[in-house]
Design a protein around this nucleic acid. Structure first.
Length: 357
DNA sequence: TCTGGGGTCCTAGGACCC
DNA sequence: TCTGGGGTCCTAGGACCC
Protein backbone atom coordinates (compact mmCIF):
# COMPACT_ATOMS: atom_id res chain seq x y z
CA UNK A 1 0.00 0.00 0.00
CA UNK A 2 1.47 3.33 -0.98
CA UNK A 3 0.56 6.24 1.25
CA UNK A 4 -0.44 9.55 -0.21
CA UNK A 5 2.42 11.94 -0.97
CA UNK A 6 2.53 14.63 1.66
CA UNK A 7 2.46 18.34 0.92
CA UNK A 8 4.19 20.37 3.62
CA UNK A 9 4.45 24.14 4.10
CA UNK A 10 7.06 26.05 6.04
CA UNK A 11 5.98 29.55 7.00
CA UNK A 12 8.67 32.02 8.03
CA UNK A 13 7.70 35.53 9.12
CA UNK A 14 9.83 38.24 7.48
CA UNK A 15 12.27 39.99 9.87
CA UNK A 16 9.67 39.35 12.54
CA UNK A 17 10.71 41.52 15.51
CA UNK A 18 11.44 44.61 13.44
CA UNK A 19 8.34 44.04 11.30
CA UNK A 20 6.17 44.10 14.42
CA UNK A 21 7.94 47.24 15.65
CA UNK A 22 7.36 48.94 12.30
CA UNK A 23 3.70 48.00 12.42
CA UNK A 24 3.39 49.61 15.87
CA UNK A 25 5.50 52.65 14.90
CA UNK A 26 4.79 53.69 11.31
CA UNK A 27 7.35 56.49 11.73
CA UNK A 28 10.11 53.83 11.54
CA UNK A 29 9.07 52.80 8.02
CA UNK A 30 11.87 53.26 5.51
CA UNK A 31 14.54 53.63 8.20
CA UNK A 32 17.04 50.98 9.26
CA UNK A 33 15.68 49.34 12.44
CA UNK A 34 17.66 47.05 14.75
CA UNK A 35 16.18 45.10 17.65
CA UNK A 36 18.66 43.75 20.20
CA UNK A 37 21.07 44.76 22.96
CA UNK A 38 21.60 48.42 23.89
CA UNK A 39 24.42 49.65 21.59
CA UNK A 40 25.64 52.27 24.12
CA UNK A 41 27.35 54.35 21.46
CA UNK A 42 29.30 51.32 20.28
CA UNK A 43 30.34 50.11 23.73
CA UNK A 44 27.32 47.86 24.30
CA UNK A 45 27.46 44.12 24.94
CA UNK A 46 25.23 41.59 23.29
CA UNK A 47 23.99 40.96 19.79
CA UNK A 48 21.49 41.96 17.13
CA UNK A 49 18.29 39.94 17.46
CA UNK A 50 16.66 41.07 14.23
CA UNK A 51 17.21 43.86 11.74
CA UNK A 52 15.03 45.03 8.88
CA UNK A 53 16.05 45.08 5.22
CA UNK A 54 17.15 48.72 5.31
CA UNK A 55 19.65 47.82 8.06
CA UNK A 56 20.79 44.77 6.09
CA UNK A 57 21.84 47.10 3.28
CA UNK A 58 24.54 48.36 5.68
CA UNK A 59 25.76 44.82 6.30
CA UNK A 60 24.00 44.38 9.65
CA UNK A 61 22.88 40.79 10.37
CA UNK A 62 21.13 39.02 13.22
CA UNK A 63 23.52 37.43 15.69
CA UNK A 64 26.15 40.10 15.02
CA UNK A 65 27.69 41.89 18.03
CA UNK A 66 25.73 45.09 18.61
CA UNK A 67 29.00 47.05 18.76
CA UNK A 68 29.73 46.04 15.19
CA UNK A 69 26.22 46.96 14.07
CA UNK A 70 26.83 50.40 15.57
CA UNK A 71 29.99 50.83 13.51
CA UNK A 72 28.16 49.81 10.33
CA UNK A 73 25.03 51.84 10.92
CA UNK A 74 25.02 54.32 13.83
CA UNK A 75 22.01 56.15 12.39
CA UNK A 76 19.68 53.13 12.75
CA UNK A 77 16.71 53.06 15.12
CA UNK A 78 17.90 50.80 17.98
CA UNK A 79 15.20 49.09 20.03
CA UNK A 80 15.28 46.66 22.97
CA UNK A 81 13.67 43.24 22.56
CA UNK A 82 9.98 43.61 23.48
CA UNK A 83 9.28 39.93 23.80
CA UNK A 84 5.72 40.27 25.11
CA UNK A 85 4.72 42.31 22.09
CA UNK A 86 6.14 39.77 19.63
CA UNK A 87 4.67 36.84 21.56
CA UNK A 88 1.21 38.37 21.24
CA UNK A 89 1.57 38.84 17.47
CA UNK A 90 3.00 35.33 17.20
CA UNK A 91 0.03 33.86 19.03
CA UNK A 92 -2.45 35.47 16.61
CA UNK A 93 -0.51 34.32 13.57
CA UNK A 94 -0.10 30.76 14.83
CA UNK A 95 -3.84 30.52 15.40
CA UNK A 96 -4.49 31.49 11.79
CA UNK A 97 -2.01 28.90 10.55
CA UNK A 98 -3.19 26.15 12.88
CA UNK A 99 -6.77 26.54 11.70
CA UNK A 100 -5.72 26.00 8.09
CA UNK A 101 -3.73 22.80 8.52
CA UNK A 102 -4.29 19.11 9.21
CA UNK A 103 -1.19 18.95 11.32
CA UNK A 104 0.66 21.93 12.71
CA UNK A 105 4.02 22.51 14.39
CA UNK A 106 5.27 25.84 15.68
CA UNK A 107 9.01 26.30 15.29
CA UNK A 108 10.39 29.09 17.41
CA UNK A 109 8.42 32.30 17.78
CA UNK A 110 7.98 33.13 14.11
CA UNK A 111 8.04 29.93 12.06
CA UNK A 112 5.70 26.98 11.57
CA UNK A 113 5.26 23.78 9.60
CA UNK A 114 1.84 22.89 8.17
CA UNK A 115 0.80 19.55 6.73
CA UNK A 116 -1.91 20.35 4.18
CA UNK A 117 -2.00 16.96 2.45
CA UNK A 118 -5.76 16.47 2.83
CA UNK A 119 -6.58 20.10 1.97
CA UNK A 120 -5.23 20.09 -1.59
CA UNK A 121 -4.94 17.56 -4.40
CA UNK A 122 -1.72 18.78 -6.03
CA UNK A 123 0.97 21.48 -5.98
CA UNK A 124 -1.10 23.86 -8.11
CA UNK A 125 -3.82 23.81 -5.49
CA UNK A 126 -1.19 24.08 -2.77
CA UNK A 127 0.07 27.28 -4.35
CA UNK A 128 -3.40 28.85 -4.38
CA UNK A 129 -3.95 27.66 -0.80
CA UNK A 130 -0.66 29.23 0.29
CA UNK A 131 -1.49 32.57 -1.32
CA UNK A 132 -4.73 32.52 0.65
CA UNK A 133 -2.76 32.04 3.88
CA UNK A 134 -0.40 34.90 3.06
CA UNK A 135 -3.39 37.11 2.27
CA UNK A 136 -5.11 36.31 5.56
CA UNK A 137 -1.99 36.85 7.65
CA UNK A 138 -1.38 40.19 5.97
CA UNK A 139 -4.99 41.30 6.22
CA UNK A 140 -5.34 40.46 9.91
CA UNK A 141 -1.81 41.13 11.17
CA UNK A 142 -0.34 43.53 8.60
CA UNK A 143 2.76 41.34 8.40
CA UNK A 144 4.32 39.44 5.51
CA UNK A 145 5.81 35.98 5.48
CA UNK A 146 7.78 33.75 3.15
CA UNK A 147 6.55 30.25 2.50
CA UNK A 148 8.17 27.12 1.13
CA UNK A 149 6.16 24.20 -0.25
CA UNK A 150 7.65 20.73 -0.53
CA UNK A 151 7.16 16.99 0.03
CA UNK A 152 8.61 17.14 3.57
CA UNK A 153 9.67 19.51 6.34
CA UNK A 154 13.31 19.67 5.31
CA UNK A 155 12.59 20.73 1.73
CA UNK A 156 9.82 23.13 2.75
CA UNK A 157 12.13 24.81 5.25
CA UNK A 158 14.97 25.29 2.81
CA UNK A 159 12.51 26.47 0.14
CA UNK A 160 11.02 29.17 2.37
CA UNK A 161 14.47 30.76 2.57
CA UNK A 162 14.96 31.02 -1.20
CA UNK A 163 12.75 33.99 -1.89
CA UNK A 164 12.39 36.70 0.75
CA UNK A 165 10.63 38.78 1.83
CA UNK A 166 7.01 37.98 0.98
CA UNK A 167 8.18 34.98 -1.05
CA UNK A 168 6.64 31.73 -2.20
CA UNK A 169 8.81 28.85 -3.41
CA UNK A 170 7.57 25.47 -4.58
CA UNK A 171 9.78 22.39 -4.84
CA UNK A 172 8.00 19.32 -6.20
CA UNK A 173 9.06 15.81 -5.26
CA UNK A 174 10.76 15.17 -8.62
CA UNK A 175 12.73 18.43 -8.40
CA UNK A 176 14.12 17.89 -4.91
CA UNK A 177 17.62 16.51 -5.57
CA UNK A 178 18.28 19.04 -8.33
CA UNK A 179 17.07 21.85 -6.09
CA UNK A 180 19.27 20.82 -3.14
CA UNK A 181 22.49 19.81 -4.92
CA UNK A 182 24.02 23.29 -5.53
CA UNK A 183 23.14 24.68 -2.09
CA UNK A 184 25.80 24.88 0.65
CA UNK A 185 25.66 22.00 3.14
CA UNK A 186 25.14 24.59 5.87
CA UNK A 187 21.56 25.07 4.65
CA UNK A 188 20.60 21.64 6.01
CA UNK A 189 18.89 21.60 9.36
CA UNK A 190 21.36 20.69 12.17
CA UNK A 191 24.40 21.55 10.06
CA UNK A 192 25.79 24.52 11.95
CA UNK A 193 29.16 26.25 11.89
CA UNK A 194 31.16 23.44 13.50
CA UNK A 195 29.76 20.70 11.29
CA UNK A 196 30.19 22.91 8.24
CA UNK A 197 33.91 23.30 9.07
CA UNK A 198 34.35 19.54 9.55
CA UNK A 199 32.60 18.87 6.24
CA UNK A 200 34.77 21.41 4.45
CA UNK A 201 37.87 19.66 5.76
CA UNK A 202 36.51 16.50 4.13
CA UNK A 203 36.04 18.34 0.85
CA UNK A 204 32.27 18.61 1.21
CA UNK A 205 30.89 22.04 0.41
CA UNK A 206 27.47 21.55 -1.17
CA UNK A 207 24.51 19.34 -0.42
CA UNK A 208 25.31 17.60 -3.71
CA UNK A 209 28.83 16.78 -2.44
CA UNK A 210 27.23 15.27 0.64
CA UNK A 211 24.78 13.21 -1.42
CA UNK A 212 27.68 11.62 -3.31
CA UNK A 213 29.83 10.95 -0.26
CA UNK A 214 30.28 7.49 1.25
CA UNK A 215 27.49 7.15 3.84
CA UNK A 216 29.58 4.71 5.89
CA UNK A 217 32.31 7.32 6.37
CA UNK A 218 29.72 9.94 7.30
CA UNK A 219 28.21 7.59 9.88
CA UNK A 220 31.65 6.81 11.28
CA UNK A 221 32.61 10.49 11.54
CA UNK A 222 29.33 12.00 12.74
CA UNK A 223 27.43 9.10 14.27
CA UNK A 224 23.64 9.17 13.96
CA UNK A 225 23.95 12.69 12.61
CA UNK A 226 26.05 11.43 9.69
CA UNK A 227 23.36 9.03 8.51
CA UNK A 228 20.79 11.75 8.96
CA UNK A 229 22.83 14.19 6.86
CA UNK A 230 23.21 11.67 4.06
CA UNK A 231 19.45 11.10 3.92
CA UNK A 232 18.75 14.83 4.07
CA UNK A 233 21.19 15.43 1.21
CA UNK A 234 18.98 13.16 -0.88
CA UNK A 235 15.92 15.13 0.18
CA UNK A 236 14.65 12.36 2.44
CA UNK A 237 12.91 13.41 5.64
CA UNK A 238 10.10 11.30 7.05
CA UNK A 239 9.60 13.29 10.25
CA UNK A 240 5.99 14.18 10.97
CA UNK A 241 4.56 17.64 11.46
CA UNK A 242 3.47 17.53 15.09
CA UNK A 243 2.91 19.93 17.95
CA UNK A 244 5.64 20.08 20.55
CA UNK A 245 5.11 17.98 23.65
CA UNK A 246 5.55 19.07 27.22
CA UNK A 247 8.27 21.51 28.17
CA UNK A 248 11.53 19.90 29.37
CA UNK A 249 13.30 22.69 31.21
CA UNK A 250 12.90 26.29 32.37
CA UNK A 251 15.84 28.62 32.85
CA UNK A 252 17.19 32.15 32.91
CA UNK A 253 20.63 33.54 32.42
CA UNK A 254 22.14 36.97 32.24
CA UNK A 255 25.35 38.53 30.99
CA UNK A 256 26.62 41.26 33.29
CA UNK A 257 27.21 44.75 31.92
CA UNK A 258 30.80 44.33 33.05
CA UNK A 259 32.70 41.22 34.12
CA UNK A 260 32.05 40.75 37.80
CA UNK A 261 34.15 39.71 40.77
CA UNK A 262 31.78 40.77 43.55
CA UNK A 263 30.55 37.38 44.84
CA UNK A 264 27.72 38.84 46.88
CA UNK A 265 26.39 40.59 43.79
CA UNK A 266 26.70 37.42 41.71
CA UNK A 267 24.81 35.35 44.26
CA UNK A 268 22.08 37.97 44.58
CA UNK A 269 21.71 38.01 40.82
CA UNK A 270 21.41 34.22 40.90
CA UNK A 271 18.63 34.57 43.49
CA UNK A 272 16.76 37.00 41.25
CA UNK A 273 17.06 34.65 38.29
CA UNK A 274 15.82 31.81 40.51
CA UNK A 275 12.77 33.92 41.39
CA UNK A 276 11.99 34.44 37.70
CA UNK A 277 12.42 30.74 36.97
CA UNK A 278 10.18 29.94 39.92
CA UNK A 279 7.43 32.26 38.60
CA UNK A 280 7.53 30.29 35.35
CA UNK A 281 7.48 27.00 37.23
CA UNK A 282 4.24 28.04 38.95
CA UNK A 283 2.76 29.48 35.77
CA UNK A 284 3.46 26.22 33.92
CA UNK A 285 2.18 24.21 36.86
CA UNK A 286 5.17 21.87 36.99
CA UNK A 287 7.45 20.44 39.66
CA UNK A 288 11.17 19.87 39.22
CA UNK A 289 13.93 17.62 40.48
CA UNK A 290 17.14 18.87 38.84
CA UNK A 291 18.79 22.27 39.26
CA UNK A 292 21.61 23.42 36.98
CA UNK A 293 23.70 26.56 37.34
CA UNK A 294 25.83 28.00 34.60
CA UNK A 295 28.77 30.33 34.77
CA UNK A 296 30.79 31.97 32.03
CA UNK A 297 34.11 33.54 32.90
CA UNK A 298 35.55 36.62 31.22
CA UNK A 299 37.46 34.44 28.73
CA UNK A 300 34.13 32.93 27.62
CA UNK A 301 34.94 29.55 29.19
CA UNK A 302 31.55 28.17 30.24
CA UNK A 303 30.69 25.55 32.86
CA UNK A 304 27.55 23.92 34.18
CA UNK A 305 27.04 22.23 37.49
CA UNK A 306 23.86 20.35 38.33
CA UNK A 307 22.22 18.42 41.09
CA UNK A 308 19.24 16.12 41.07
CA UNK A 309 17.36 16.36 44.34
CA UNK A 310 16.15 13.22 46.13
CA UNK A 311 12.63 14.71 46.08
CA UNK A 312 10.21 16.44 43.70
CA UNK A 313 9.52 20.08 44.49
CA UNK A 314 8.24 23.40 43.23
CA UNK A 315 9.51 25.48 46.13
CA UNK A 316 11.55 28.63 45.62
CA UNK A 317 13.67 27.94 48.69
CA UNK A 318 14.82 24.58 47.30
CA UNK A 319 15.77 26.26 44.04
CA UNK A 320 17.63 29.14 45.68
CA UNK A 321 19.48 26.96 48.20
CA UNK A 322 20.58 24.39 45.62
CA UNK A 323 21.57 27.10 43.17
CA UNK A 324 23.75 28.89 45.72
CA UNK A 325 25.40 25.61 46.75
CA UNK A 326 26.19 24.67 43.17
CA UNK A 327 27.56 28.15 42.46
CA UNK A 328 30.10 28.12 45.29
CA UNK A 329 32.70 26.03 43.45
CA UNK A 330 32.80 28.56 40.62
CA UNK A 331 33.39 31.69 42.69
CA UNK A 332 37.14 32.07 42.64
CA UNK A 333 38.98 35.27 43.53
CA UNK A 334 41.14 35.07 40.41
CA UNK A 335 38.28 34.76 37.93
CA UNK A 336 35.81 37.40 36.82
CA UNK A 337 32.35 36.23 35.86
CA UNK A 338 30.65 37.30 32.63
CA UNK A 339 27.39 35.35 32.89
CA UNK A 340 25.39 33.41 35.44
CA UNK A 341 22.28 31.33 34.95
CA UNK A 342 20.01 28.81 36.56
CA UNK A 343 17.72 26.19 35.03
CA UNK A 344 15.37 23.50 36.34
CA UNK A 345 14.73 20.20 34.57
CA UNK A 346 13.39 16.69 35.19
CA UNK A 347 10.02 18.40 35.13
CA UNK A 348 6.89 16.60 36.18
CA UNK A 349 3.57 18.30 35.55
CA UNK A 350 1.64 18.81 38.78
CA UNK A 351 -1.33 17.07 37.14
CA UNK A 352 0.62 13.98 36.27
CA UNK A 353 2.17 13.85 39.72
CA UNK A 354 -1.28 13.82 41.32
CA UNK A 355 -2.21 10.69 39.39
CA UNK A 356 0.97 9.01 40.61
CA UNK A 357 0.11 9.57 44.25
C1' DT B 1 33.50 40.49 14.77
C1' DC B 2 34.46 39.83 20.73
C1' DT B 3 30.57 36.89 21.06
C1' DG B 4 22.28 37.33 24.11
C1' DG B 5 18.80 34.44 25.94
C1' DG B 6 15.35 31.03 25.44
C1' DG B 7 15.43 26.25 24.60
C1' DT B 8 16.35 20.83 22.68
C1' DC B 9 19.04 16.89 21.79
C1' DC B 10 23.23 13.97 21.78
C1' DT B 11 27.43 11.85 23.73
C1' DA B 12 30.35 9.84 27.02
C1' DG B 13 31.87 8.36 31.44
C1' DG B 14 30.88 6.83 36.06
C1' DA B 15 27.85 4.97 39.72
C1' DC B 16 24.91 1.56 40.87
C1' DC B 17 21.92 -2.53 40.56
C1' DC B 18 20.93 -7.29 39.32
C1' DT C 1 39.60 -11.95 44.22
C1' DC C 2 41.84 -9.81 40.06
C1' DT C 3 36.69 -9.33 37.66
C1' DG C 4 30.92 -10.08 32.94
C1' DG C 5 27.20 -7.71 30.87
C1' DG C 6 22.93 -5.20 30.50
C1' DG C 7 20.15 -1.44 32.01
C1' DT C 8 19.30 2.99 34.06
C1' DC C 9 20.31 7.25 36.17
C1' DC C 10 23.15 11.22 36.77
C1' DT C 11 26.48 14.76 35.34
C1' DA C 12 29.21 17.79 32.18
C1' DG C 13 29.96 19.51 27.86
C1' DG C 14 28.83 20.81 23.31
C1' DA C 15 26.22 21.57 18.92
C1' DC C 16 22.31 23.41 17.22
C1' DC C 17 17.77 25.95 16.62
C1' DC C 18 15.29 30.80 16.50
Amino acid sequence: MSEKKRIILHVDMDHFFTAVEEREHPEFKGKPVIVGADPKEGKGRGVVSTCNYEARKFGVRSGMPISRAWKLCPEAVYLPVNYELYAKASHEIMNILRRRSDKFEQWGIDEAFLDITSKVKDYAEAEAFTKEIKREVFEKEKLTCSIGIGPNKLVAKIASDIQKPDGLTIVREEEVEKFLAPLPARKLLWVGRKTEQKLKAMGIKTIGDLAHYDPAVLAETFGVMGTQMYLMAHGIDRSEVEERGEIKSIGRDITFQEDMSNFEFILNTLDELAEEVHRDVLRQNVNFRTVTVRVRYENFETHTHSKTLPFITNRLQDLKKTGRELMQAYLRPDRKVRLVGVRVSSLISAEKQKTLM
